[in-house]
Design a protein around this nucleic acid. Structure first.
Length: 259
DNA sequence: ATGCCCGCCAGAGGCGGA
């Protein structure tokens, strides 16, 4: 069973690439972030033609998440139960479902913007709510995983140059502590293989030749409970998908399970 | 070559991304 997560940076702009990628990889379940579309605009019909059911939490031009599955899509929960508002709004940043033998979350954690910004405090509150919302499933015997754009580089090894990020979001002790809390609760970081170079970065800025220079970050993560982690046979970052015209600035992270 | 940002909404240019 092949599960993946991909921040597509607009599903409308990425649709031709998305459909081709799904076909070529044979992915069974895909967690999508930054759909940047309304629920009505989501391309359910095109995906259904490839055999995927869709669970969508999307409200317009910002954020938006989805789950695609060829192996069943049951007990869908849209949103983060107990999650914080931002500027009075529950943003579409989480959707979860049972896909065959596994329970899966697709999450788009708030960016944080600047350390002294209200968005950063919101990000930390969002992580706190996530920890509470997943606790039961983490502890259960069923394979369970949270996949998505966590907007945190877990260690200094997960950015191309830690000096560049001094004082910036994505690398602060508080953000990394939020990830550590998830691990202490029973989730482990499923580390993907890089297909090239030594680090499995998942994001490269569009600007300043970041991708050709491999100035990347590993911020798209797979956090699985013990039954999930035990079933993992392989995982890799599909950096090929970051190449060429019309690429997202994030690459998919693929996980193969023997389940 | 993987190559100097992209997508949204709007109908210009500002915002967000990280």
């Amino acid at each position: 069973m092949r599960i993946a997560t991909w921040n597509v940076n607009s599903i409308t702009a990425r649709l031709p690439r998305l459909l081709a990628w799904l076909e070529s990889t044979g992915t069974d379940v895909l967690c999508i972030q930054e759909t940047k579309c309304s629920a009505e605009q989501f391309p359910r019909d095109e995906l259904r033609e490839l055999g995927y059911e869709s669970a969508v939490n999307a409200t317009g031009r910002w954020n938006g998440v989805a789950l695609l599955s060829k192996v069943g899509l049951e007990d869908v929960v849209s949103g983060l139960p107990g999650g914080p508002d931002f500027e009075g709004v529950q943003e579409p940043r989480a959707v979860s479902a049972t896909c065959g033998p596994v329970r899966i979350w697709s999450v788009y954690v708030p960016n944080g913007r600047e350390v002294d910004h209200e968005h950063y405090a919101y990000k930390l509150r969002w992580f706190e709510a996530l920890k509470g919302a997943v606790a039961q499933d983490v502890a259960g015997g069923r394979p369970f995983a949270v996949l998505g754009d966590f907007n945190v580089a877990p260690t200094d090894e997960d950015v191309w140059d830690p000096a560049v990020f001094e004082g910036a979001t994505h690398v602060t002790p508080a953000e990394r502590a939020a990830l550590a809390t998830l691990r202490e609760a029973g989730l482990s970081d499923v580390m993907p293989r890089p297909l090239k170079y030594d680090r499995p970065y998942t994001f490269w800025d569009y600007r300043a030749l970041a991708f050709p220079k491999n100035k990347g970050m590993r911020i798209d993560l797979v956090y699985g409970n013990e039954p999930f982690a035990k079933a993992v046979k392989d995982s890799y970052v599909d950096r090929e998908e970051r190449k060429g015209k019309g690429a997202s600035d994030h690459a998919p992270v693929v996980v193969d399970l023997e389940i």
